[in-house]
Design a binder for these strands. Structure first.
Lengths: 350, 350
DNA sequence: GTGAAAGCGCTAACAA
DNA sequence: TTGTTAGCGCTTTCAC
């Protein structure tokens, strides 16, 4: 139980076990064939010594960094609802299983190539890169030029492996749920139409209506293409919803933040949900369940997106076999969603 | 402009510059005395080669990790308002200046020693540790036993350097502002009374009233000691506020999430802010300015908290001089706040 | 002002 | 099955 004040090394273990450091190394890494006896002994002594391998030494020898980078836009990271935070936590969880560290950093919304390059990319200190949410094309271009394996999350770009939400399925199920409840004039509330996730939701909202044989009414698309999909924007769009010549029976909102904002606006105006207007959101953030009127929403498994992304990234990094850059990874992995029905979309038992 | 496909090393630079690697090293680290000529030459060749020092090699040689850990509770990290996210961004910003990487990880609310130990602590892969927000005592005890320098942020513990918010000043200014506006019956809305920041705010709310010669009325403390200070909790407490025998003229809320929840409740009940009741929050999160009724709040400079913490941590880490653990750092650094007045607390120009 | 050489702690041929 | 040895890329005495 002797504890050396300074960290003990593989050499200490070897010495006390009366064997060579390479044997110890083999044991510690589960490699080669080692007799059960030595194996045990090494393990025991290592434990007694409180031996911890030096990451720097191992990485230096292995010619790798042991880190993966996680990049997202600062305005996304600091959104009120911790959507990307959960994604990050998912990657971090999975990273532990692979003995990797995740370096999280943000980039500005408008990216200046060179200027804003994350330090770990500049210094080549990551074995792979995770990019979450929409980012500047410039950033992606720069990242690709570094020949580091990349996996996108909740975003897509030609030639890059991407883990995305099943926006189509989610939007369809949400709209069909509203129709099933008897609402026919269903509006769409959206913002930031440059984000593929959002345009997908819009697209599939339309297609769901079509399939139901409901004529498409452009007046029911209440969106601000440029604005961020935040609660404040939702409040504004909620107003517009109320100013419509003929008030819709329900609204499908591109995400929960917007839906909560709409809810604020309706509540201010004395319009009751769902009696006067039903509401469905997307993402199923915490605030959805806790809203004054609990919000029906399409649940997105955020941690799972992160985990999957990390798992695939590891796949790209590990096999040291000669890989032509971007040769594989042409594919996109779609993560299913799930409709969570709450009060905001269920007709009162009048 | 020749670019080797595989990374160039200090040796490559030395060779092309016709000098030894030690000289190159000296130049690269601004050490020793090197002639201006060689200095230039080295720098130029390094640039041409796109030379990037290997972090693993340097760390191995320097006997350090180049990382600092950032730990906070998961439930704090995933709160709706990105309070701790901003603190993290502050540390990350400052870390760049010191060429450090920040390893962010969460621990559960109830911490099981050993079980939940962050990997970077277990593997001793950080040179220092930042802890944000309230955490389990067990965690702190364990962390201290590792003899790694620690700096707390928005939390305090005996013997540890801490960067904290000026809750006293903030609370006082907030309450005095309300009094100055003519509101006399001022309630306090709070939750999670085990958090020092919150109890401090409560304490100084009382003292501000006393100083104004206003008798203290315990009925005006509307709090749930156990609940998390979230918007949902605020909604509940807002109800309680309304059920008070005599409705308060104003409420000082322990944070913005609570204040926003109170606002929800009042708005639902048709109680207008500030005409029927004034509201002041704390933290000045984004949602405060964007609320249906923009919220007066005590601004907390979150990034600054993070920056300061990192700066002090570096201070503890860098001077390799023999330091008796915890010998210094007995102090607490208080970061000032600032009252931001918005509509929620300003009497209408009736 | 500059260079030679040892060493940081580990992995991986290659030998034995 | 185990040991010897040569690196991995850098910093840092200590000569010169």
């Amino acid at each position: 139980m002797s504890v050396t004040s300074s960290r003990s090394t593989i050499r200490d273990v070897a010495r006390l076990a009366n064997m060579s450091i390479s044997t110890v190394s083999l044991v510690l890494n589960n490699k080669g064939s080692v007799s059960e006896a030595t194996r045990r002994k090494v393990l025991q002594i290592a434990k007694e010594l409180g031996y911890r391998p030096s990451r720097a030494a191992r990485d230096l020898s292995l010619q790798r960094t042991g880190n993966v980078g996680f990049v997202l836009r600062e305005d996304h990271f600091t959104r009120s609802e911790p959507f990307y935070t959960y994604i990050f936590l998912g990657t971090e969880f999975e990273a532990r299983l692979h003995n990797l560290y995740v370096l999280l950093t943000t980039i500005p919304r408008v990216y200046r190539r060179g200027e804003d390059t994350p330090r770990f990319l500049r210094e080549r200190n990551v074995d792979g890169l995770l990019v979450a949410g929409k980012v500047s094309d410039d950033f992606l271009t720069e990242a690709r030029s570094l020949e580091v394996p990349i996996v996108l999350i909740d975003y897509e770009a030609a030639g890059l492996l991407a883990i995305v939400i099943d926006n189509q399925g989610g939007a369809r199920v949400a709209v069909e749920h509203l129709l099933k409840q008897g609402y026919r004039r269903v509006a769409f509330v959206g913002a930031d139409l440059s984000h593929p996730s959002i345009t997908n939701r819009l697209e599939w909202y339309r297609s769901a209506l079509m399939r139901a044989g409901i004529p498409f009414d452009p007046a029911l698309i209440v969106a601000d293409a440029e604005a961020e999909p935040t609660r404040a924007t939702g409040q504004r769009l909620g107003q517009r919803l109320l100013e419509l010549p003929e008030r819709p029976a329900a609204a499908f909102c591109a995400n929960d933040a917007l839906a909560l904002g709409v809810l604020d606006a309706l509540s201010q105006a004395g319009v009751r949900v769902p009696d006067d207007m039903a509401l469905v959101g997307f993402d199923d953030v915490q605030g959805a369940a806790q809203a004054p009127v609990p919000l029906t929403s399409v649940r997105v498994f955020k941690e799972q997106l992160g985990e999957l992304a990390m798992r695939h990234l590891v796949e790209l990094v590990e096999p040291a076999q000669a890989r032509r850059p971007y040769a594989r990874g042409q594919h996109t992995i779609v993560v299913p969603t799930e409709l969570v029905v709450r009060a905001s979309s269920v007709r009162s038992v009048a």
